[in-house]
């Protein structure tokens, strides 16, 4: 005796098959490729986050933005290996050279990635003096209350270069100085002086 359900399932198959719209093997390849890219990006993010945490821990600075009142970091820190894993470049005494260009420097360090340094200032006119020593031009961006005020690239050299920037705080607010990753391994020092 024939199975009465068999023709029903055959009917289901014959009616459903034409309505199936395969996305296609090319779509599968795109999905696999996209997922591989996302995994790689996620891995890179984890590595960068770990690197950032390492830098912060090396600086002894919890929020990633160094307040002006914090004493300068020890220069012995400059001998530490950096997270980028790229060999140290520039003169061994580049930190001393940069500091020597900015008497009474409030902030100093070596660029590894990018540096974002902030402080609060009262209303008034100021001069920011930046000294650097290292292998690459040092991009500098000055933000007042998180608005870009000035951008420049200091022609940094091993022998040392200094630049000054004047700016005005219309009212009490924040100053941020961002030294870009283009200046990788440049030693820098800077000081803000009220005129």
């Amino acid at each position: 005796m024939p199975d009465p359900l068999a023709p029903l399932f055959e009917d289901l198959r014959s009616r459903a098959l034409p309505r199936v719209q395969p996305p296609g093997p090319a779509a599968a390849r795109r999905t696999v490729h996209r997922r591989a890219t996302v995994r790689a990006a996620a891995l890179a993010t984890v590595v960068m986050a770990a690197g950032g945490a390492f830098i912060v821990s090396q600086r002894g600075d919890g929020d990633g933005v160094a307040p002006a009142a914090v004493p300068s970091v020890s220069f012995s820190a400059f001998a530490e290996p950096y997270v980028s894993g790229v060999p140290w470049r520039g003169r061994e005494d580049k930190a001393d050279i940069a500091r020597g260009l900015v008497p009474g420097a409030e902030q100093e360090g070596v660029v590894d990635g990018s540096q974002d340094i902030g402080m609060d200032l009262d209303e008034g006119r100021y001069v920011l003096r930046v000294g650097c020593s290292g292998p690459a031009p040092l991009p500098v961006t000055i933000l007042l209350d998180d608005q870009i005020d000035q951008q420049d690239s200091i022609a940094c050299a091993d022998s040392g270069t200094a630049a000054e920037y004047e700016f005005t705080m219309a009212r009490a607010g924040s100053l941020r100085v961002i030294m870009g990753s283009g200046g990788q391994f440049d030693a820098y020092a800077f000081k803000v002086t009220k005129k």
Partner: peptide
């Protein structure tokens, strides 16, 4: 394999 099997498998899972 995709061309031969995708639709059949889909009908099964549709059911």
């Amino acid at each position: 394999v995709y061309a031969a099997q995708y639709a059949d498998l889909t009908v099964q899972l549709y059911a």
